[in-house]
């Protein structure tokens, strides 16, 4: 089963790089949604691989399936729906010129991956358990999300960056803490959903007040 998990991780890395390289908002939103669906399936794969490796570990529980479904629905359906709606409202198709050009962004994305593998080799041994790609890909995804938040100018792109960051943290959580209590996980998912919801409402207000959603141009408050 580990091959499948590794394949999923590689898919995540490729998605991140595609996100860094594309300027069309609708495409970016779909990429992030695909990531979300892939990640929703990850906990199921993890449990499955453990069950086949040792017979001691408990198998799939209803709780896990429920969380997986909730995660796929939120990240794969609700988020893109909210964001595509916000994008239609604001009538923008493309990111303006980001602070970091697209080729440079992709190079930076590759660098985050190098950095993450290096970090992984420096971490204490307690991180060594579990599939080897999980931690570095998680770290790289978090960094890519951060990069998108700081380098893009449009409100929607920044929200996308935030979601990618959350995705990375989600993977990191699976890698570090096997059993996060379901209530906590639900809370985190709910928070992520409300965050995107609130951000898309504020985006709507911004596009109505300013006639654009280029948050870089909002710079009246200083000092």
């Amino acid at each position: 089963m580990n091959e499948l998990i590794d394949a999923l991780m590689v898919l995540l890395v490729l998605m991140n790089l595609r996100l860094l390289g594309s300027s069309r908002l609708a495409a970016c939103i779909r990429i992030v949604a695909t990531e979300g669906i892939a990640l929703g399936l990850l906990p199921l794969l993890l449990v499955w691989s453990q069950t086949s490796a040792s017979s001691v570990e408990p198998g799939l529980s209803g709780r896990m399936i429920f969380l997986s479904v909730a995660s796929v629905l939120t990240r794969g359906v609700l988020f893109p729906w909210l964001l595509l709606k916000a994008q239609r409202d604001a009538k923008v198709r493309r990111e303006a010129e980001p602070f970091l050009s697209y080729p440079l962004s992709i190079i930076a994305g590759v660098l985050t991956l190098v950095l993450s593998f290096w970090l992984r080799s420096r971490l204490p041994p307690s991180f060594a358990s579990g599939p080897p790609l999980l931690v570095p890909v998680a770290l790289s995804t978090i960094l890519v999300g951060l990069l998108v938040v700081v380098s893009r100018r449009l409100a929607i792109s920044q929200v996308l960056g935030y979601i990618v960051m959350e995705n990375g943290i989600y993977v990191l959580g699976l890698a570090l803490v096997r059993e996060i209590p379901a209530l906590v996980e639900m809370g985190v998912l709910l928070d992520a959903f409300v965050a995107v919801f609130v951000m898309s409402i504020v985006t709507h207000h911004i596009s109505r007040q300013f006639d654009h959603i280029d948050v870089d141009q909002m710079d009246s408050l200083k000092g």
Partner: peptide, 18 residues
């Protein structure tokens, strides 16, 4: 709702969420 209050809200949301 005003341009400057929206600017502050957005900054707050993004910085604190991240």
């Amino acid at each position: 709702v005003s341009p400057s209050s929206l600017e502050a809200t957005w900054k707050y949301l993004i910085m604190c969420s991240v």
